[in-house]
Amino acid sequence: MRITCPLCGERDRREFYYVGDAVALRRPSPDAGEAAWDDYIHNRDNPAGDTQDLWQHEAGCGAWVVVDRNTVTHAVNNVTLAAKVTR
C-alpha cells in the first residue's frame, strides 16, 4: 500500500504507523458516560468498504493523517492532516 502524505508526497506503507479508526478525532468529554467511552475505546463500525482511519507518517515527517480508504480493495481515496480536520 502507498499513502500520499500531505506534507511529503506518496510514500510506502512501511513508513507509516497505524492506530485504528478515526473515531479518535471525537474524544468524548470525561463526563460523557460509560457507553460513550466504551464506543470510543472499544466498539467499531468496522466497515467492509469505505472507512476513515488514523495513521502517522512516523518514519517521515511525524504527521498524523486521516486516511479515507477502502478496507476491501485497499484503494486510498484521500489523505488529510489530522490537525487540520474540522471536528
Binding site: 500500500m1 506503507r13 497505524y18 485504528g20 479508526d21 472507512t51 480508504r69 478496507t71 480493495t73
Partner: peptide, 13 residues
C-alpha cells in the same frame, strides 16, 4: 498487516 482490512491478501512489507 496492521491496518483494518477485509481483503484476504497480505501486503509486501
Amino acid at each position: 498487516d496492521f491496518y483494518a482490512s477485509y481483503a484476504q491478501r497480505g501486503n509486501l512489507p
